[in-house]
């Protein structure tokens, strides 16, 4: 614990707050995941951990390491950007997969495929606009 004692209070306090906020939100998200009833409700819970949960911990890490190393350490921000870009892809794919499976079973709880079109049989990425809904394009 020696390296943490040298940190001044004005760095330690915001870092500690961010850490508690981030990990608390992640825990709440996982709690919701275990607790909520339907799959589509559960789909919302992990985004707590991947939005401000990750942001809090990453920002705390940037603050502390920048102080400890004596130079701006920004590599942790890359993890934040990475999570920000990948979570939509996984959650969107999972949502569509679940919709597809529920429709194939004839579940009444999900809306039918849009405007009397036959159910989408997993031709993701075949046409341009739907391809845009899968991986985010780099700038």
């Amino acid at each position: 614990m020696t390296h943490l004692d040298a940190v001044p209070l004005w760095v330690a306090l915001p870092a500690a707050l961010l850490l508690v906020l981030g990990s608390g939100l992640t825990l709440l998200g996982a709690f919701g995941l275990a607790r909520l009833q339907s799959f589509y409700d559960r789909l919302h819970a992990p985004t707590l951990g991947t939005s401000w949960g990750t942001a809090g911990i990453v920002l705390a890490s940037v603050l502390l390491f920048s102080w400890l190393e004596g130079r701006p350490v920004l590599q942790e921000l890359l993890i934040g950007v990475f999570v920000m870009l990948t979570t939509p892809v996984t959650l969107m794919l999972l949502g569509r997969a679940s919709l597809h499976r529920d429709r194939a079973e004839g579940s009444a709880a999900v809306p039918p495929a849009g405007n009397a079109r036959p159910a989408d049989r997993g031709t993701a990425g075949a046409d341009g606009a739907r391809g845009a809904a899968t991986p985010p394009a780099w700038p």
């Binding site: 949502g95 046409d127 739907r130």
Partner: peptide, 24 residues
């Protein structure tokens, strides 16, 4: 397409809304 991709990221990253399907 790129604007739709950005909108998808925004909608999914925001807790409380989930993007399920887009009919082109």
């Amino acid at each position: 397409p790129s604007a739709l991709a950005v909108l998808a990221i925004i909608v999914t990253a925001t807790p409380g809304t989930a993007w399920l399907e887009y009919d082109a």
